[in-house]
Simulated assay, not measured.
Amino acid sequence: MGALMGGGVGLTIGFLFGSWSILQHGAGPRGVLSTLSKTMLSSAATFSFFLAIGSVIRNDSLEAAHLQMTAPIPAIRSRAEGFQLMRARWEEERRRGSASRL
């Protein structure tokens, strides 16, 4: 989806800047159509590449956020219960660490 949107935006921007460049400096030896199409296609390729990468990054982060939001919420405990649970986990980690060193 990002590549398609980037392609559309790139073609539009390429048309605007290419037309402006042709009006300002002339078409050159290749002609108007060739110069304009080269500008439009290079702009479309650049925009579609970067927007495609951005959509992949965004999709990955949204998926991670969704997984995080759907994780079960632990029961609310008192401060003392939380402290006991924390100590029990520390002890378990210490036991696992000493067992792996042997």
Results as ranks from 00 to 15, higher is better:
A3W: 05
A3C: 03
A3P: 13
L4K: 13
G6E: 10
G7Q: 03
G7D: 09
G7K: 02
G7N: 09
G7E: 01
V9T: 05
G10C: 00
L11E: 06
T12L: 14
T12D: 04
F15Q: 09
F15C: 10
L16Y: 12
F17A: 01
F17L: 07
S19K: 07
W20P: 02
S21C: 00
S21L: 07
S21D: 03
I22N: 06
I22G: 02
I22T: 04
L23D: 06
H25C: 08
G26W: 06
G28K: 12
G28P: 13
P29G: 10
P29I: 10
V32K: 14
V32L: 14
S34I: 10
S34Q: 13
S34Y: 07
T35S: 15
T35M: 10
T35D: 11
S37L: 13
S37N: 11
T39K: 04
T39A: 12
T39G: 04
M40C: 14
M40L: 02
L41H: 06
S42T: 05
S43F: 01
A44E: 08
A45R: 06
T46G: 09
F47P: 04
F47I: 01
S48K: 03
F49L: 14
F50H: 08
L51S: 13
L51Q: 13
G54Q: 15
S55H: 15
S55D: 15
S55P: 09
S55T: 15
V56C: 12
I57N: 15
I57H: 11
I57C: 14
R58C: 15
R58K: 15
R58G: 14
N59M: 15
D60G: 09
D60P: 11
L62I: 11
E63W: 08
E63V: 06
A64F: 08
A65P: 14
Q68V: 10
Q68G: 11
M69W: 12
A71R: 15
A71I: 05
I73E: 13
P74K: 09
R77T: 05
R77A: 11
S78V: 03
A80P: 09
E81V: 06
G82S: 08
G82K: 08
G82Q: 07
Q84G: 02
L85W: 01
M86K: 12
M86V: 03
M86T: 03
R87F: 00
R87T: 00
R87Y: 00
R89G: 04
R89I: 01
W90V: 01
E91H: 00
E91K: 02
E92I: 00
E92S: 02
E93I: 03
R94A: 01
R94V: 00
R95V: 00
R95F: 00
R95A: 08
S98R: 05
A99P: 07
S100A: 13
R101V: 01
R101C: 02
L102T: 06
